[in-house]
Write a protein that binds this DNA or RNA. Structure first.
Lengths: 179, 179, 179, 179
DNA sequence: TATGAATGAGAGTTCATTCAT
DNA sequence: AATGAATGAACTCTCATTCAT
């Protein structure tokens, strides 16, 4: 297997398992087994399991940023962009393999005292805040950005807790009201 | 060690460690060592580490319910009650040993397929929703209860992510607006 | 509960479990739970789990002796007595709750270096040898006693291994031939 | 430690201890300590202690088959082959480190409900039965095979119980008579 | 005498990581 | 560069027994 194929297999498998099962519940043995690579190969590409988690969060961060911006770009008016984002969340939550927000899930699972991980999560969420600010800039409502971001995370976390669609609907309604 | 202090020691120590370090990061060995009891004593009182987690969540659930209701009871008007709750959150978050919401922390850490744990978290959050409904009943604004609850959880989770006081302030402001 | 009731409950429960599950596979917790007595009560009547095993073997030894002699007594001729014993074995093996010979089962399970236990088993088997000698005395064939005893144990052990009725039939046939 | 010596060390040590002390009385800690390997190394080669028992029984099964057939092959006449087998048993039982039949010892120790283990023992004993049938085929006395097998196991089990040489002598005599 | 909590020691198993090939 | 066996440390849980009440 080519070097890059090996690395890709590892990252893809780890990402899938970290998301579905959680970081702690996923062992390196399961990763290498399902990825079909040797154990030492994993440690040649990543110094530790934690490094693999960083890679996972970084990739998902970029993917999420792009996805959200694509959704926003598909609408012209700020309000439409914002509401489309909540609709996007709703559609995500309806998917079969949805297990919650990649970043919030990890956030509670990682041990305290690992700044680079907590920073990664924070940075990702700051990107969301920045996105809302950009969206609201044309209509001079940047100060509402953090409120929308909080509704965004509220939708994610309460959907996770209650396993139901009502939170994102409520969040959308609240967003609509404050705009 | 004294008979009925053993159980208390176990529960108190486990609660402290589960909260500070997380459930997975806390081993029974650490619990018994810091509690100063024998390992078999722990398993005399709790069939498994998971049972100990249930006890922890149950106790914290009751404590949290009581604390929130006490805060609400200290004000007369619904709006005052609600705002006091967000002020209470802010004061909690300012404490030295605050590590986030007991229940949201556990929520992302427990493996799927443990319904009694997910149910415990959900039930606790439903208590908060019910509390807001009760508070708003006199002014016939019960339909805002879930919105306030979402701001409540939004404050908790975004404070956790950002390690800062701004989220709870923003949440409070939003609550004030919608009331 | 009266003292003797407690002791009886313990002995009966332990006997049942030792026989069905084996000595090692039966824990004192299971015994006291199913017997409905306190743990310390068990240790008041028996200094150790091993002592309980001794009691079990002693009781079963007497019961087995009596049962075999009763079977032998029900026939007049030595040959009839012997064949009746093998028929008795066959009927035992056909029972629902038959799990093999109490003594041979224990024999392989007990750690070496416990003379009092190995002696108990040996003594029980010597009783069987003596019984066959007594039976054969009237016809002056005492020297066949050990041969019959070996067929007796052969039937027990091979029935255990093969889980089938053929061994005892074969043993009976062999006994008939040598008489 | 050298790569492929680890597995050998584990198997040899476990075999020695399982035979001498029994399966239940032998812990994985003792095995790895006496084998001089790490605990995780044991579990790299065997998924469980029970798997190690299967390996032990399988190896001893082959060894026993070979040894018995070698003994039989050293004689020309069926009767000579059979008696040589009983002489072989007698010589085994005279050895310093003889603790009984590997298979009968395990038979009573393993919990019911582990078919692969009971089947292994049964299969080994069926090999003995088949061997006797083969030996007796040339003289058309195959129907005596199971009788000889029963004397074979009778010798093993009663030697174990009585710790004496008389059973195998008696079994040999009986074999001689029926042939 | 009867109790049930408390215990030290050890059970079997799995973890993330490293090393020799 | 790629491998798979080897590893120390830690895991959750259970054992037979004893002690305080």
């Amino acid at each position: 297997m080519k070097r890059n194929q090996v690395r890709n297999q590892i990252v893809e498998t780890a990402s899938r398992l970290f998301y579905k099962q959680g970081y702690n519940a996923t062992g390196v043995n399961q990763i290498i087994e399902e990825a079909g690579v040797a154990k030492a190969s994993l440690y040649q590409h990543f110094h530790s399991k934690e490094d693999l988690l960083v890679e996972y969060l970084t990739i998902k961060g970029t993917e999420t940023d792009n996805a959200l911006r694509a959704v926003a770009d598909s609408h012209r008016e700020p309000k439409g962009k914002v509401l489309a984002i909540f609709d996007f969340l709703a559609s995500l939550m309806g998917q079969q393999e949805y297990y919650g927000c990649n970043f919030l899930n990890i956030s509670s699972e990682i041990p305290t005292g690992t700044p680079r991980l907590t920073e990664l999560v924070k940075k990702q969420k700051d990107n969301v805040r920045a996105m809302f600010r950009e969206i609201l800039k044309p209509v001079h409502k940047e100060k509402l950005a953090d409120e929308l971001y909080m509704l965004f995370d509220a939708a994610l976390i309460t959907n996770k807790v209650h396993g139901d669609a009502w939170p994102v609907k409520t969040a959308r309604k609240m967003a609509e009201k404050i705009l």
